[in-house]
Simulated assay, not measured.
Amino acid sequence: MKTYVTFAAAALAEIAGCFAFWAWLRHDKSWVWLIPGLLALAVFAYLLTLAETDAAGRSYAAYGGVYIFAAVAWLWAVEGQRPDRWDILGVAICLVGSAIMIFAPRSA
């Protein structure tokens, strides 16, 4: 469960950092938005190193499912666009895939 908490925090930091760049480039916000954006992206990268997995690639792949969930939550909470049933189905499929990767028994 600690891995999912770490992934959730990383996803929030990554989305916030990327959104700062999006706001700067797509919504004509000040370049000052890049400062917290870069800091958030650095926090994101650090948080991914805390995941309790033995392989970076597996950690990043499993994180993808949590990121997709967080991105759809951001869509709704920040951008005001309610996810449709296809968004929800896609998120569910990704979270199942993520759980399989994280919790699957592995031989030593």
Rank of each mutant, 00 (worst) to 15 (best):
A70T: 02
T53G: 13
S59M: 11
Y63W: 13
G80R: 12
F69N: 00
A73D: 03
V66T: 12
W74F: 15
A71E: 09
A71T: 15
T49G: 01
A45F: 11
A71Y: 05
G65L: 12
A62T: 08
A51F: 13
V78H: 04
A70I: 06
L89T: 13
V66W: 10
A51K: 06
R82P: 02
Y63S: 05
A77D: 00
V78A: 14
V72A: 05
V66S: 01
G57W: 03
A55S: 09
R82H: 11
L75F: 12
L89R: 08
A45T: 11
V43E: 07
T49M: 01
D54V: 05
R85L: 08
L75Q: 15
A61K: 01
A55G: 06
A42M: 10
D87S: 07
A56M: 15
G65E: 11
A61N: 10
E79I: 03
A77K: 12
V72Q: 01
I88N: 05
V43P: 10
L50Y: 09
R85Q: 01
W74G: 00
A73R: 03
G64R: 06
A70Y: 05
F44I: 03
R82L: 14
Y60A: 02
I68H: 05
A56G: 02
D84K: 04
D84E: 03
P83V: 02
R82I: 10
Y67G: 00
G90R: 06
W76E: 03
D54N: 14
A61E: 08
A61W: 04
G90Y: 08
T53S: 14
R58K: 14
A56I: 12
D84I: 04
E52T: 04
D84C: 04
D87N: 14
P83Q: 06
Y63L: 07
R58A: 08
I88M: 11
A71C: 06
Y67W: 01
L50I: 13
A73P: 00
F44C: 05
A56Q: 13
L50S: 01
A42C: 09
Q81Y: 12
Y46K: 08
R85W: 13
G80Q: 06
G65S: 10
F44L: 03
A73W: 02
L47D: 07
R85G: 02
Y67L: 14
V66Y: 07
V72W: 06
V43I: 14
T53N: 10
V72Y: 02
T49N: 00
R82D: 00
A70G: 07
G90Q: 05
T53Q: 14
